[in-house]
């Protein structure tokens, strides 16, 4: 709509997805949640869904303003495929699978395969995101975002940490630090190996710090008008350590 207002796009036809009931809302299917593409950030911020996927709710609440969150959708965040898309690191950390529909029928694609570059997706012309599947996990979740102010701000970095106590794994999704959302696999492995899974606690506070450093090493941050690569790496290290310590509190050293 911003581009249309500015005269950069002049659509000759428009499809109103908000009127397609199949794309609205969310529901649970066993251990999975199916999020409709037209789910708005306001829908994710609070209530039952926020309790089931807290990192998504935290991310949603940092987006734009209340007026933006009332209309902007999950499908739109994926379709935009911006490196600064705030839900994308959360979806990456959750191993989200995107349901796509097109003339040739439907397919399911992992989010990280769907997003191929800065504002680029593997969606074919005429293909539409219809839903996103995420697991319901037992364990802490945390989303942290750094920007130049508290509201209405495009992310300088984002960190999403998701703990799966049953699968005994830690997952980290990073945003605004590469053309596409990044999974910090090395850091995840390290945290998983240094967790006392019987008690559901990190082995010690130093583990969170090292985890942060490893997350920073997995980025491909650049200098741009919003920040520098150095600052971004540093912010990822600090935020990732903090997020992990909140999602999986350490045993005292």
């Amino acid at each position: 709509m911003v581009e249309v207002n500015a005269g950069r796009r002049r659509p000759s036809s428009v499809v109103s997805l908000t009127r397609v009931p199949e794309l609205a809302g969310w529901h649970r299917e066993g251990d999975e949640i199916v999020l409709g593409a037209c789910l708005t950030y306001a829908d994710m911020e609070r209530g039952e869904l926020a309790a089931l996927v807290p990192a998504l709710a935290q991310a949603a609440r940092t987006i734009g303003s209340p007026q933006i969150r009332a209309v902007a959708t999950l499908g739109g965040n994926i379709g935009t495929a911006s490196p600064a898309g705030d839900t994308l690191p959360v979806l990456a950390a959750l191993d989200a699978v995107v349901e796509v529909a097109g003339r040739a029928g439907g397919r399911r694609v992992p989010l990280l395969e769907l997003i191929t570059g800065v504002k680029k997706t593997s969606l074919a012309p005429g293909e539409l995101v219809t839903a996103v599947r995420v697991p319901v996990l037992r364990g802490g979740q945390e989303f942290l975002k750094v920007g130049t102010r508290n509201a209405m701000v495009i992310s300088v970095v984002m960190v999403a940490v998701v703990v799966d106590l049953d699968g005994q794994s830690v997952r980290a999704g990073l945003g605004s630090v590469a053309p596409v959302p990044v999974r910090a696999r090395e850091a995840e492995r390290y945290a998983g190996e240094h967790t006392d899974w019987s008690r559901g606690r990190l082995a010690g506070p130093a583990v969170a710090r090292r985890f942060g450093e490893l997350c920073a090493e997995s980025t491909a941050a650049i200098d741009d008008h919003r920040s520098t690569a150095d600052y971004r790496r540093r912010a990822v290290a600090v935020c990732a350590a903090r997020a992990l310590a909140r999602a999986l509190p350490p045993l005292e050293a």
Binding site: M1, A6, A42, Q67, I68, A70, V71, M152
Partner: peptide, 20 residues
């Protein structure tokens, strides 16, 4: 472009930017 909120209106039960 949704930044200033001076166009805020209520659409059904939600506050939105009319420009968007």
């Amino acid at each position: 472009q949704g930044e200033c909120g001076s166009c805020s209106v209520r659409l059904d039960d939600r506050l939105v930017c009319a420009c968007l």
